[in-house]
């Protein structure tokens, strides 16, 4: 079974957890209109047009942020075996951000009746460019080194873009629409956590986790 990008199936490591919210202050930029006229099948899938919000969320919370533990956690963490799905549907990538463990499968699926290609451009890992010309096609790939956000895009439909981060541990998650997050199964300790957003700089915060309890940390971005 594939899992949503923001809900890695963490093996039991500890009894604590890290929760909190990623927030933003300021006025987000206007959404960008996407022109899909070049491919009629994309236009049919989006008869009212489509747009991309660089800063998205609800109630001051920021979604599409990958939150992870930056501090080295003791122990060995075998790769998660459940694939994370990157779906190409309605000529858009879903989800917008993906967290993966080293060696965890990324399952790329074409749910459209048109050609898509999946072209990640990592710096540390080896890139690839997979073409999926037909609906229902699926391809699995893995990354073998930890790496912060790198873009994955479709060269045929340049507006299609997602971001992938790769970790050597399972302690990461994606913020929900209201910016909230929860990293479960965290061993007790003092941690630095890191927030990655596709268009904003990396932010960090500190939190203490006690056995069986939640350590809470919020991080706030100030938009210029």
């Amino acid at each position: 079974m594939a899992t949503a990008a923001g809900a890695p199936m963490v093996q039991a490591q500890g009894s604590g957890k890290i929760t909190g919210r990623i927030l933003f202050k300021g006025v987000p930029p206007e959404p960008m209109k996407i022109r899909m006229a070049a491919d009629p099948r994309c236009q049919q899938a989006n008869p009212n047009g489509a747009e991309r919000r660089q800063i998205d969320g609800k109630n001051g919370g920021l979604t599409n942020v990958i939150v992870s533990i930056k501090t080295k956690v003791k122990g060995t963490f075998p790769p998660l075996t459940t694939p994370v799905v990157l779906d190409q549907s309605g000529c858009m990538y879903t989800p917008a951000v993906i967290g993966l463990m080293v060696g965890q499968p990324l399952k790329m699926r074409n749910s459209d009746e048109t050609l898509h290609n999946i072209h990640p451009r990592p710096v540390v890992n080896e890139g690839f460019n997979v073409g999926q010309p037909r609906k229902g096609m699926e391809t699995e790939k893995k990354f073998d080194k930890p790496e912060t956000f790198f873009p994955v895009s479709c060269d045929v439909h340049p507006w299609m873009r997602s971001y992938i981060a790769v970790f050597d541990h399972p302690f990461f998650t994606t913020t929900k629409e209201d910016g909230s997050f929860e990293i479960p199964n965290v061993p007790p300790g003092e941690y630095e956590i890191e927030a990655q957003h596709p268009t904003l700089k990396i932010m960090t915060g500190k939190v203490v986790v006690k056995a069986g309890a939640a350590g809470v940390v919020d991080i706030t971005y100030t938009l210029k």
Partner: peptide
């Protein structure tokens, strides 16, 4: 195998076993 395998542009994707 895609363009890069043969020194061609990296926007030419690898279609693998699609065909």
């Amino acid at each position: 195998n895609g363009g890069p395998k043969h020194g061609l542009a990296d926007v030419m994707p690898a279609f693998g076993e699609a065909f």
